[in-house]
Nucleic acid binder design. Sequence first.
DNA 1: GAAGGTTGTCAACAGCTGATGACAAGTCCA
DNA 2: TGGACTTGTCATCAGCTGTTGACAACCTTC
Lengths: 191, 191
Amino acid sequence: MRPCYPRPRNAEATRADILLTARKRFARDGYDEVGLRDIAREVGVDAALISRYFGSKEDLFLQVMQSCDNGEGFMLGDRATWGRRIAEQVMTKPKPESKMDSLPIMLRSLGSAKAMEIIGRSSDERFFRPLIEWMGGKDAEVRARLAASVVMGVAMGKEITGGLPLDDDAKARFTTRFARLLQSLLDDEDC
Amino acid sequence: MRPCYPRPRNAEATRADILLTARKRFARDGYDEVGLRDIAREVGVDAALISRYFGSKEDLFLQVMQSCDNGEGFMLGDRATWGRRIAEQVMTKPKPESKMDSLPIMLRSLGSAKAMEIIGRSSDERFFRPLIEWMGGKDAEVRARLAASVVMGVAMGKEITGGLPLDDDAKARFTTRFARLLQSLLDDEDC
DNA sequence: GAAGGTTGTCAACAGCTGATGACAAGTCCA
DNA sequence: TGGACTTGTCATCAGCTGTTGACAACCTTC
C-alpha cells in the first residue's frame, strides 16, 4: 500500500487525505479501535504528521465530525415521501466515498467518553436543531427526537445482527413499516 | 475503597463480586474503556485473579452477558399496556443493582469488534428469538425487530444527548408517543 | 503439627497507544 | 548560491493494556 517513491509534497492534499481516511476508519471501527498509526499507514504517511496537522486525536475526531454531512440529506425533497426515502437510505449500504458517515461514527464511538462528548456537542446544533425546525408543527421537538431515535435504532439493529437477518421479502415489509412510522411522525402532529 | 484487612477467602463470593462489578462497569463505560485493573480495583482484588477465574477479558465479557436479564422483562404482564410499560422503563434510569444491563452494555460496546461478535451471537438467541415468539401473529419477526430497534434507538438518543433535553411536559408527550408506537407494533399485524 | 490444596498477591512481560522533539529533504525567494 | 521555510520521517518517551508464573497466606485433612 505504501508507495516506494516519496509522497509528493502537498500539505493541503495530504491534510485532506488524512481527514477522509480518518472519517472512513472512524466510521468502520469507532474512535477507540482506530489508532493514529492505522490511519497514517493507510494514508501512506507517518503518524507524527497527523499529530502535527490536527493536534491531538480528539481534535482530529472533532474535525472529522465537522467535515461530515450531518444529515442535511434528511431534509431534502418531497415531504410526502420523506419516510420512505429515509427508510430506504438507512436500509441500504452507503457509498464508501459518502460524507454521510456521522451515523456509523456515532454508533461505533458510543463507548468512548471523549468521542461522545464531542458527538453530543456537535450533533445537537448540526443535526437535531435543524431537523426540529424542518419538521415544524405542533410538538416538533418531540416528534423529531423520536424520529431520530427510530432511525438510529434501526441502524444499530443492523449493526448488532450484522445486517438484518431477514429475507428480501421480509426486509421489504420491514422497510415499508419503518417508512410509514417515520412518515406518521412527520405528518401526525397531535399526540 | 480497598479495605486494609485482607479479603476474606471465599472464591464463590469473590467470583460473584467480580461478575457484578464487571457488569456495572461494562454498562457504564463499554468493553474497550474498562480495564481488568479497573474492575479489580473496584472489587478490591488483584487483576491477575480475574484472569485466573474467567480466562480472558473476552471470556469475562461473555459470562457477563450471559448473567444479564436479556430483556425477559419485556415479555411480562398485560399485552394491552405493554407499550407504555416498556416506554416508561426505557425512559427512567434503571436501579444500579438491576440485571437489566444488556442494553447499555450493547450501546457502549458497539465499537468493539470482539465485544460485538459476542453480543451478536448471544442477543439473537437470548433476546430476539423469544421476543419474536412472544409477539406472535402475522410478520412477527418484522414487527419484533422494528420494535427492538425503536427501543434501542430511544436508549441511544438518551445516551447521545445526555438524557433527552426535554422539559417534563415534553418528556411525557415523548413517552406517550413512544408507547403508542410500540403498542401498534404489537397489535397491528397488517402491513 | 505436617502435607496438600485453595485463594489471593506481586512483579514482570511484550505489545500497544498518543505524543514530542530532533532531523532530513524538498521548495522558494533573494 | 545560500539562507529560510515547509513538508515529512524517525527515534523515543511514558503510560497503559491483558496475561503469565512465581510466591505467600490460609484452610482442611490426616
